[in-house]
């Protein structure tokens, strides 16, 4: 739509303003150099210079546990479909995570649409934040071109010398800018600073693996029977860390949670993982991905190959979380390199 700028000294005031309207969630520091998205009421509680949080912001779009139905079987199979929502502002979301949310948007708006996701999404205001450099060596956002903003936000902040350039992308974002009264019109000097930032980023962010974006799906086609998968299978503990922290993993299980009277209860969905042994099991106990290597291969293909066919995009955002969190040190970049090497 349009652009504005906000002076750095006014950022704290902006966060306070946002928090006075509704719940604000931003990156907060944990121990050992790690971060998580959590509720904040001031800028001081946040760490805007952060590496990807343990869990991506998907937890606000499709929570770990989510109620689908409330039921009561006292008089037959009675139920009501419900969605639990709250107005939320997500502050300081990096471009990789914005890309992740865009992937989830595609999945859940594909027919049959997922109303729970769609309704919750409409209650969330997204404020993005540009990275000027790599967060750490696990990231592979350059290869997927997710180091640059590609939409998916209401407002997007790029840090410059003494202000932030703000891209306003929606009416929701526009009214925030107006109501807060903290923003100024863009001046030429600031526009130039943004150009300089983007130019500098072009030098910093390079494809981390020597492969072109458009060649990635074919690589996975050609390496389906590769020994690389066998080797990953030997290492993998099937703990599900990689899928839980992935911004585009959305598999789930559906469970009933009865209350103590056994009459009322909730039908919920809970995050599930294709890495678990019984994920693809059917009645009678036959499993279609019994081996760890098969499950590992399935996960990689669900990032780089299958969604290309179905949704015309790669479902890896380059955030590096899976490599960062893997107990067995299964590294995404190393895996792609190994696949390329083996294919020759």
């Amino acid at each position: 739509m349009t652009q504005a700028l906000i002076r750095k000294e006014k950022l704290a005031e902006l966060v306070t303003f946002l928090a006075s309207r509704q719940k604000v969630v931003g990156p907060v520091p944990l121990s050992n150099g790690q971060f998580k998205f959590a509720e904040v009421s001031s800028l001081a509680e946040m760490a805007l210079d952060y590496i990807p949080t343990i869990l991506p912001p998907k937890k606000y779009f499709m929570p770990q546990h989510e109620t689908l139905l409330k039921y009561d079987v006292a008089k037959g199979q009675q139920m009501e479909a419900v969605v639990e929502v709250e107005e939320l502002t997500l502050f300081g979301v990096h471009t990789c995570d914005l890309a992740g949310i865009q992937c989830l948007n595609v999945v859940f708006s594909d027919r049959p649409k997922d109303l729970h996701y769609m309704i919750r999404k409409n209650h969330i205001t997204l404020i993005g934040l540009e990275c000027s450099d790599y967060c750490d060596s696990y990231a592979n956002c350059g290869m997927l071109r997710n180091h640059l903003p590609k939409g998916g936000y209401d407002l997007f902040f790029s840090e410059l010398e003494d202000c932030y350039m703000v891209d306003i992308s929606t009416h929701k974002g526009e009214s925030l800018v107006e109501e807060s009264g903290l923003f100024e019109p863009v001046v030429f000097e600031v526009e130039k600073q943004l150009q300089t930032l983007r130019k500098a980023k072009k030098k910093i962010f390079k494809s981390e693996v020597p492969i072109r974006y458009q060649d990635i799906p074919r690589l996975f086609d050609e390496t389906f029977d590769s020994d690389v998968w066998k080797r990953l299978g030997e290492k993998c503990l099937s703990c599900g860390n990689c899928t839980n922290v992935c911004p585009t993993c959305y598999c789930f299980d559906i469970l009933d949670e009865p209350e103590l009277d056994l009459s009322k209860g909730r039908r919920i969905r809970v995050w599930d993982s294709c890495q678990h042994e019984n994920f693809a099991k059917i009645a009678g106990n036959e499993s279609f991905r019994e081996e760890r290597f098969d499950r590992k291969r399935h996960r990689f293909n669900r990032k780089f190959r299958y969604p290309m066919l179905r949704y015309k995009r790669i479902f890896c955002t380059g955030c590096g979380r899976c490599s960062r969190t893997c107990m067995a040190k299964i590294d995404l970049k190393e895996t792609i390199n190994a696949l390329m090497e083996e294919r020759g």
Partner: peptide, 18 residues
């Protein structure tokens, strides 16, 4: 035969490739 859990093409349990 696969484990069709949600029936809506989302939950992933019945997925065969894409």
């Amino acid at each position: 035969e696969r484990h069709m859990k949600c029936g809506l093409g989302k939950c992933g349990h019945c997925q065969i490739h894409d």
